[in-house]
């Protein structure tokens, strides 16, 4: 079902639940993986994904369609992730890098990475990036999102995003090369 149809049905109280159910089914996987890449842990990703859709439910009626529905949902998901990570840092009085260290521990426990040393180093390098830069990297590298759409999701200029991605790639390559030596 097209986004426009979902929105039309959502505005009708009789078909609201059905429309929202279809919206969740359509975007759940993308939202989940977007969140999961940021928080690594499945349980955290599960909680945050639900929170994202609850916020979508609350505010969808006021959605003005200035941006595509998916971009809007992505923006909510992004804000939820960044808030979650910063609240985690505040809660445990952690410096910037320590959340990365915690996420790395979770990553090392993941069986999928067993045996692939270069991939493990690459993932560790990604987790060492600051949250916002990691977000930019994920959107560009994994989701292959155009910079214009990324600008709408993050509220940052295209130029700043290009620079941020370029620096992220340099940092990652540098870390993997140092870890290999």
């Amino acid at each position: 079902m097209e986004d426009q149809d979902i929105l039309l049905k959502f505005r009708d109280p009789a078909s609201r639940n059905l429309a929202f159910n279809q919206l969740v089914r359509k975007y759940q996987s993308k939202v989940y993986w977007h969140v999961r890449k940021m928080v690594v842990d499945h349980d955290d990703a599960d909680d945050l994904t639900q929170e994202v859709f609850i916020k979508v439910w609350k505010h969808l009626e006021n959605f003005r369609q200035d941006a595509a529905l998916f971009t809007w949902i992505y923006r909510i998901a992004t804000n939820e992730c960044l808030n979650f990570l910063s609240s985690k840092r505040r809660k445990f009085f952690l410096p910037l890098n320590d959340v990365g260290a915690e996420l790395t521990q979770k990553l090392e426990a993941d069986e999928q990475l067993a045996g692939d040393e270069v991939e493990l180093k690459l993932q560790k390098a990604i987790l060492r990036l600051p949250d916002k830069q990691r977000l930019v990297f994920n959107l560009r590298y994994y989701d292959e999102m155009p910079y214009e759409q990324m600008a709408e999701v993050t509220g940052t200029s295209v130029g700043a995003l290009k620079a941020s991605y370029h620096h992220a790639v340099k940092k990652i390559e540098q870390y993997v090369n140092q870890a290999t030596d």
Binding site: N17, V24, W57, D110, L113, Q123, Y141
Partner: peptide
Amino acid sequence: RRPLPPLASPPEDYFQQLPRRVMQRV
């Protein structure tokens, strides 16, 4: 390049149950 980082997949029926769980909460 991988489409996703190599993380463990969520439980098998996770995406079947998620819409119901979200609907229960809203």
